[in-house]
Write a protein that binds this DNA or RNA. Structure first.
Length: 849
DNA sequence: GCGGATCAC
DNA sequence: TATGGTGATCCGC
């Protein structure tokens, strides 16, 4: 079902508009905005609810004010420095871009209301909503014309639309329908991720591959097939199906831009063609493209349930979700898996459309002049100074059109208690092994369960003294599991996921070392932070830690880290570590954090031999503080004097940044040409990403460089042998290491024939000559390792919502184990504490229970 | 480690 | 008359 956010019309966060508006003009039926507003205000004003809304609004305003004060204190130097760091990160993100997956987001239209209308013909053509006088959970499109939306109290809805019929929810029925839909979805992706009863993500990449070889008959669906009649829906469905000459979904043919229609193989063409045939009159053959697959899915859903769905097709979940909303209801939209197509789509996209950006975030960004994704990208340096690391990383992902490409995997249902216990035990021993390898002990054991209905429960237990062995952990986890099993008795727990997590680490010395070792590992594992991780690793190994690193017992983390390092060193005969430190996004910050965390007691430990990663000069035996100061001053001097002695440093500074931008820019143009060709729009030049690049950093010569690029890079790209700019600079790039080469400049680099690529993680030979693909494989491989090892879930959990890091499941462990995160600046924006009204919670139990 | 804020459904 | 319940994350205290 569409979220409240979407139902609230134009996403205004204004209190007046909170309950939602729609876009319809004043007219025959329904109400215009002013009228709706007025009625809502009259209904809400003076209420306790209203008072609380006002209070909350004030708090947010205060936060914004604090933020603006913070902004006013930022110096141009700080901004420049931030720009460098952020752009480094953006480069890494760009490299990790993965367009190889086809992700589909399927969203049932006005689900609950649609089910009710389907099953009660009297409700057809009437404004209805599902819920109670206190709260509505959804409304049909008819009702929405009156401003009646989800999350609106029924009594207000009634004032907006007196003829509104409010139907009490019937979750059992919705669940049953949902199951029918999921059965279809599972055929296209057995590991699809259901977000709720009416919403799911699918990764149809594999299906698409297989489908290419399918004969037509395998893609043929009969319009009046028996299976839909079996459901016997009050005859209504039969009626509807019999009208099907025109198509069961009128919008099915009109939902995508014309240029996306596969030529000669479209649904329409197929349909017409077969219409002529007597035998096949009532069947439709769907094509082999992603778009056709999704049409097929939607067609089948409608045949089976007599309900319509909307869908989005894109290279990642973030985009797919937005796409599914684009042609709602009963429509679909695709973003082609081409970088430029993504950037075109992102360009003017209001940030509020992105899942995870809510009312408050929108308002705060708006105060900074940011409403669209382009603006979000333009202000990235500022954002990195005003928001927490998690937040600005998240913002940058959005601005670049990046999102998750892998959906959670699931295992087949486990219902037997014995199996559940043994799985739990298994997970506990795996967890214990890694804890012991890492020298960690913890006090809190968390059991995570997801049932077949995708409901997730976490149950934690904290004991008084630390534990680490499999037996100890299992003893705790077992009790948690037992409680859950008993609570549902005599019904079995029908699980599709189980996870065991350890936190509250409390070991002494080892812990301190291991904390950063995990940080280092995680960051190394995260492709976006590769360089940082290696930098950290180097410092970690050479300057801080001895014991576990040198012990023969190498943990998973150590192995992966050293493999990573090894592969880098292997590829680059240069001073790997120093080069990497050069490109780190925030080495100094991490050093500081480590310093804080380590609480180094021994002076001799405190004063070590440091080499500055910026100027490469050995700093002798100095304290960490002194070292950090040196590094900072080195970095601060960045745009200032350029001594020839620090040539390596200047490579990383403004000159290199310009070049990096150059790389970006040229790259985008290269790809855009492909894209234009693809789109048969040769000659049409869109400049969205060019805009983005040019506006990077208000600082200095970036602009002129940008202009230059704008004029010349197209030629550079179309003329491949001309390496003067693109290629030359990439050679200067520090990313010439393993993970760098191909992905940044795919239009230019090719692997020498005969070169064998062996994944340093899984050690399997990769049958691809494409470096970019290979890099993607390595990163995926590595991240899988992290996820499995750190969380020990029998199935990875779904992608976390909110601004969670790309580390996925591991983020909590990372968070718990380390404190290396940049201190959130949000602190400063928090307004005075709200005293919550004494609101007795009367549970209405309308919603999922 | 907990509770508040934010977000999603 | 009347403005949800739940789970998840991040963050500050």
């Amino acid at each position: 079902m569409e979220s409240t956010k979407e139902k609230n019309g134009n996403h205004k966060d204004n209190l007046l508009l909170r309950v939602g508006l729609n876009d319809n003009k004043a007219g025959m039926e329904g109400l215009d905005k002013e009228k709706i507003n007025k009625i809502i205000m009259e209904s809400t004003k003076g209420s306790r609810f209203y008072g609380n809304e006002l209070k909350k609004e004030k708090q947010v305003n205060q936060r914004i004010e604090n933020m603006m004060q913070q902004k006013a204190q930022i110096t141009s130097q700080q901004l420049r420095k931030a720009q460098l760091q952020v752009d480094k990160f953006a480069m890494d993100l760009e490299q990790s871009r993965n367009l190889n997956n086809t992700i589909v987001h399927v969203d049932m239209d006005a689900f609950y209301a649609a089910v009710e209308m389907r099953d009660n013909p009297e409700l057809k053509d009437k404004p209805i909503a599902v819920g109670s006088m206190s709260m509505l959970s959804t409304s049909n499109y008819h009702a929405r014309r009156f401003g009646v939306r989800a999350a609106m109290p029924g009594f207000i809805a009634k004032r907006l639309c007196p003829q509104l019929i409010i139907v009490p929810p019937n979750f059992d029925k919705y669940r049953a329908v949902s199951k029918e839909v999921k059965e279809i979805l599972a055929e296209y992706d057995p590991n699809f991720m259901a977000m709720s009863l009416d919403e799911a993500y699918l990764n149809i990449t594999k299906h698409l591959q297989e489908r290419q070889d399918w004969p037509e008959d395998k893609r043929r669906y009969f319009i009046k097939s028996g299976n839909s009649v079996e459901h016997d829906r009050c005859g209504k469905e039969v009626n509807k199906l019999s009208e099907h000459g025109r198509s069961i979904s009128p919008l099915l043919f009109e939902d995508s831009p014309p240029d996306l229609q596969p030529p000669g193989n479209s649904f329409q063409a197929n349909f017409e063609e077969q219409n002529n045939s007597q035998i096949l009159q009532n069947s439709i053959v769907f094509g082999t493209s992603a778009e056709e697959v999704v049409k097929e899915i939607r067609f089948r859903i409608e045949q089976k349930t007599a309900l319509t769905a909307s869908a989005g097709i894109a290279p990642n979940t973030m985009l797919a979700k937005i796409c599914s909303d684009k042609n709602k209801p009963n429509g679909q939209y695709q973003i082609l898996p081409i970088r430029q197509a993504v950037m075109d789509f992102i360009k003017d996209l209001p940030i509020r459309k992105v899942s995870g950006v809510g009312k408050v975030t929108e308002k705060m960004l708006k105060a900074l002049g940011i409403s669209t994704c382009t603006e979000l990208y333009q202000q990235r340096a500022l954002l990195s100074l005003l928001f927490s690391e998690t937040s600005w990383h998240y913002f940058l992902h959005i601005a670049l059109g990046l999102g998750s490409t892998d959906l959670a995997r699931t295992f087949s249902e486990i219902s037997k208690a014995e199996k559940q216990y043994s799985l739990c035990q298994e997970l506990c021993s795996e967890l214990a092994q890694d804890l012991q390898k890492e020298g960690l002990k913890g006090r809190t054991v968390t059991l995570k369960l997801k049932n077949v209905n995708f409901e997730v429960k976490t149950r934690a237990s904290t004991v008084s003294s630390v534990v680490s062995t499999a037996e100890e952990i299992f003893a705790i986890a077992k009790e948690l599991l037992r409680t859950e099993i008993n609570s549902d008795f005599p019904h079995p727990l029908r699980l599709r996921l189980m996870g065991v997590r350890m936190s509250s680490f409390h070991s002494e010395e080892d812990k301190k070392h291991q904390q950063k070792s995990i940080v280092g590992f995680l960051q190394a594992g995260n492709q976006a932070l590769t360089a940082t991780g290696c930098e950290l690793e180097k410092i970690d190994k050479d300057q801080f830690v001895k014991p576990l690193e040198t012990s023969q017992k190498k943990s998973f983390f150590d192995k992966k880290r050293s493999e990573r390092i090894w592969s880098h060193q292997d590829k680059s005969k240069h001073e790997t570590v120093d080069k990497q430190s050069l490109q780190t996004s925030q080495p100094f910050h991490i050093l500081k954090n480590m310093n804080e965390n380590l609480e180094i007691s021994d002076y001799s430990d405190n004063c070590q031999l440091f080499t500055c990663p910026v100027c490469f000069r050995e700093q002798g035996r100095i304290s960490l503080e002194a070292f950090n100061k040196h590094v900072d001053s080195c970095l601060d001097g960045l745009s200032a004097s350029e001594s020839s002695k620090v040539s390596s440093y200047s490579r990383a500074s403004s000159a290199e940044v310009s070049q990096k931008e150059n790389a970006h820019h040229s790259f985008s143009l290269c790809e855009k040409q492909d894209y234009d060709a693809h789109q048969n729009k040769a000659g049409v030049t869109s400049v969205d990403y060019v805009d983005l690049v040019e506006t990077r950093g208000n600082s200095s010569h970036a602009e002129s460089v940008g202009t230059f690029r704008n004029e010349h890079s197209t030629e550079e790209c179309s003329d491949l042998p001309n390496k003067s700019s693109c290629l030359g600079l990439v050679e200067n790039e520090d990313e010439m290491l393993l993970s760098g080469q191909g992905s940044l400049q795919p239009c230019r680099y090719e692997v020498t024939t005969g070169q064998v690529l062996v994944c340093p993680v899984c050690h399997l030979e990769q049958k691809t000559a494409d470096l970019a693909l290979f890099n993607v494989h390595v990163d995926v491989c590595l991240n899988k390792g992290i996820i499995q090892e750190l969380s020990h879930e029998a199935s990875p959990v779904s992608q976390p919502r909110g601004h969670s890091s790309s580390a996925g499941n591991s983020s909590r462990v990372q968070k718990t184990v380390t404190k290396a995160k940049r201190p959130g600046l949000m602190t400063k924006y928090s307004a005075s504490k709200k005293i919550k009204p004494n609101n007795p919670r009367h549970t209405l139990d309308i919603f999922f229970k």
